[in-house]
């Protein structure tokens, strides 16, 4: 089943074109990896999916991003972002307690019942493999957690609003290998219930977790295929060069 369908998407910041005629589909319950050098448009593409780009002035786009067959520009942006969650490159806990960080989304969307909030928080933290580590100090500041824990907290915060899709924007770029492994573990288990899009600078990470992988270069989609295929027999020379580290 197709979750996201992107049709002939172009995007500009000021007069600089950052996405050039992108066509691709994201399938339900897959992990789609997106690789490419910096400034290839991967992050901009990711932020198209929850319309975060439009917060910047001087942003312009043409083409369509469809979620479940509906043009995302027609969906209320708050509702869209509730359905399409995001985990950022750096762990970005809000300056609140651990509990309030996870409960933030639910509260925003109108949940006030304490018991229900507590359930939501526990469930989300459990899904993000953080519950056991923090259950005794839910009221302490989120900044007291380690980097890896903070990033899993951010995942939990995203899960707490029960999204359908989760966008990961280089979620492990600031983490050590052990924390990275924990985050990747969490992603692999999450795909049972969610659709995941993973932008990463780390080619090997895509190889480890993505079902399909897309290669972006200078705002263009060069190639999209099964991860195995991309990493063993890519159809484009440039893809091959990139994953072999000839440029980056």
């Amino acid at each position: 089943m197709v979750k996201f369908s992107i049709k002939n998407l172009n995007a500009w910041f000021n007069s600089t074109q950052v996405l050039d005629s992108i066509n691709l589909e994201i399938i339900t319950h897959e992990i789609l990896g997106i690789i490419g050098p910096s400034n290839s448009g991967k992050t901009t593409f990711l932020r198209m999916c929850n319309r975060l780009n439009e917060l910047e002035s001087f942003f312009r786009m043409t083409g369509e991003v469809e979620l479940d067959g509906e043009n995302s520009n027609q969906i209320d942006s708050q509702l869209l972002r509730k359905r399409v969650g995001m985990v950022f490159a750096l762990p970005l806990p809000l300056p609140l307690s651990i509990f309030d960080n996870v409960a933030y989304g639910a509260r925003i969307h109108g949940e006030t019942n304490r018991k229900k909030l507590a359930d939501i928080v526990e469930l989300a933290l459990t899904e993000a493999y953080l519950w056991e580590e923090v259950k005794d100090r839910l009221n302490s500041s989120a900044f007291k957690l380690s980097g890896g824990q903070q990033q899993r907290l951010c995942i939990a915060r995203t899960l707490a609003v029960k999204p359908e899709v989760i966008l990961f924007d280089e979620p492990c770029s600031g983490l050590d290998p052990i924390s990275t492994a924990k985050v990747e573990d969490a992603m692999l288990k999450l795909k049972k219930n969610y659709t995941l899009v993973l932008v990463t600078n780390n080619v090997k990470q895509a190889a480890r977790v993505a079902d399909r992988t897309a290669f972006f270069l200078s705002g263009k989609l060069i190639e999209l295929d099964k991860t195995e295929k991309i990493f063993t027999a890519p159809s484009h020379q440039k893809t091959d060069d990139y994953i072999r580290g000839k440029f980056g």
Binding site: R81, G85, M86, Y104
Partner: peptide
């Protein structure tokens, strides 16, 4: 600014 971005990304107005 990142705090605002996080908040928007969760669907806050």
């Amino acid at each position: 600014y990142s705090f605002r971005e996080v908040s928007y990304s969760i669907g806050a107005s």
